[in-house]
Design a protein around this nucleic acid. Sequence first.
DNA 1: CGGCTAATTGACTTTAATCAACTACAGTGG
DNA 2: CCACTGTAGTTGATTAAAGTCAATTAGCCG
Lengths: 209, 209
Amino acid sequence: MRLAARRRPDAGPPAIGTVRRFAAHQTIYAEGEPATHCMLVIHGVVRSCSSFADGRRFVSAFYAAGDMFGFERQQAYPAAAEAVVETALVLYPAPDWPAFLHAPDSLSRQILSALMLSTEQARGHARLLGRLSAIEKMATFLLEWRERSNQSTLISLEMPRQDIADHLGLTVETVSRCLSQLKRDKVIGLRSSRHLDLLDVAMLRAIRG
Amino acid sequence: MRLAARRRPDAGPPAIGTVRRFAAHQTIYAEGEPATHCMLVIHGVVRSCSSFADGRRFVSAFYAAGDMFGFERQQAYPAAAEAVVETALVLYPAPDWPAFLHAPDSLSRQILSALMLSTEQARGHARLLGRLSAIEKMATFLLEWRERSNQSTLISLEMPRQDIADHLGLTVETVSRCLSQLKRDKVIGLRSSRHLDLLDVAMLRAIRG
DNA sequence: CGGCTAATTGACTTTAATCAACTACAGTGG
DNA sequence: CCACTGTAGTTGATTAAAGTCAATTAGCCG
């Protein structure tokens, strides 16, 4: 079904798109599939992940409400996108992208800016993976997630530990041990395994370095 | 001095730019400096690197002849750029970028494509850092460098071991041990520490996975 | 309640980092 | 020309960090 996308004053280009809903764990697109659309998250959480022949997995990014993803060169998506929880997206057809560039200057700047931002974020993540310890990675991840939760001190990690591990280049056990240590040190509190209080943000920043 | 950039039919946008030369180890721009230009490498090798307060360092990418870099959002470059060896660049002023977008469709597609490619490469590198072992990282690095050397079996690594280590998230010692092992196994040959023969590309691919 | 998956915890192993010594080599000046 | 210096690279011994394997606990949904 094709619908006019709701106009959101602050997020994404005001183009016409298709709204689609995905159930938790549903695949949005597979690795290697033709890159036909880019997407804007309305609500929910999406993970972008790629798999190795031997079963290893890597989660390159998580996307939450307001984030765009799927801007891809070529015919093939380099990684799969999967809904972590129940999710709604607006899909913009790929052939429209170049047309965006002829839109008013402020809009083309926004698109350029979004693309540059995604490169910057990917490099920042590479830096984390290449040079931070397990506990530093964990602190960085929690602080990042806090920013997306409007700086709230209570954050909700929608994804399982395995996804966090595959995003930070760790194992589930190490993720679990880091969280336990932070809890023991009263830096965080665990209401449930996916809902946690950041009790000492200053300490988290100190750990992150 | 301002010169008309040489027109190269296959590389980069055919705009007017400034040619500049940099000596080995010279800083092209510093971390945090206003992002005034993007650059095209004419010859030489550039590393993009960021430093931590405690001295750790991370090299997010190397750029060789034909590569563009420095397309950055905002006022500040997120990482420094340094010439690894004697290098020549064409500099394009930042304010011209949005103007590029009004260029013919094929050109705006090229710019989009270049930006998407850099994101894709950064994510690919994150994947390597997050999930590969030391020897797998090393094999991947050598194969990548081979592609840039026109598939030649004799490759010239212009950078010191420390740069490779900081790019792959390893220590110099580990880089050295991996290379020694590959040499022992007759996968590579070392003419000098920075000039090596890829004796068994198939084996390198097998190691990379 | 029972059966499932997710998460935690502990014991032990592996990988790569650290620390330290040594080698190779390029550049400098006697 | 050759010692002297300094940097880059290699190698070995040991340690530390995170991974692996295994057992247990906590939540969830029928």
